[in-house]
Amino acid sequence: MTTEPTVHDAIEMELVQKHASRPEVPETPTPVIQVEDVSVFYDDYQAVRDVTLDIGHNEITALIGPSGCGKSTILRSLNRMNDLIRGARVTGAIRYWGQDMYEPGVDPIEVRRRIGMVFQKPNPFPKSIYDNIAYGPRVTGMKVDDMDAHVERALTRAALWDEVKDKLKQSAYGLSGGQQQRLCIARTIAVEPDVILMDEPCASLDPIATLRIEELMAELRDLYTIVIVTHNMQQAARVADRTAFFTAAIDPQTGERHGELVEFDKTTTIFERPADPRTEGYISGRFG
């Protein structure tokens, strides 16, 4: 970090201070989403098995672990994006405020409107910045009195307004990668979701853009419940209140790899006093 010390350091410093000043994380989360004994299958292959964890209200929950451990699979089942993959099947129960979201009769479109998602690669629509934000409210039939004000509010919350306010009618493809990702967060915010899922949102961004997103997440925590999948352990340590560590284990009978949840606790516990030796091995860089 010798090339651009000032900006990066300033953001990181601010983030560390913010992190230090946040209130103590409660011992047990107030669950928004309860994952109970969930396994996800792709046809006959069991990708993840028997995951149980609670996503706490207005908390940031990080899912970490090596590649192929099923953390993205679990994330995508939290708003039924897995429904779009042919052959994908979820067993067990995922409750959203106590209600099973896989119950027959539940509309997956309604689930996704409440539980939004930000993807690994920024995926703005080939439309103007304004239309990218207005898209969600328009298609979901949200009652919006003043769309201009609504767009401004979403962009402001995503810390992007000042950078784009003079070019709202220009294509979203003119933005940098980090700006595009914040646009995608603003697009998700615009439908006023309850929960925001983020699937490695910084994987394709440079360190400064990454810190910007992390800073944004820390700000959004007071308004939304956030679940983030990340490969970056420092990121989990910096932003998450609670961390779930997944790993892939080979079934001795079948020889197949399955993802499983090893440990789920407060981030400080996971990083300072992990209960499972596999967690300790991973966070200290011994494998994965």
Binding site: N79, L84, I109, R112, R113, M117, K121, N123, V139, V191
Partner: peptide, 18 residues
Amino acid sequence: VPRELRDGSLAVGASDLQ
């Protein structure tokens, strides 16, 4: 048309037809 664009639309609560 990249799969990601469709996913982005569905993730804000749009239907398949929309």
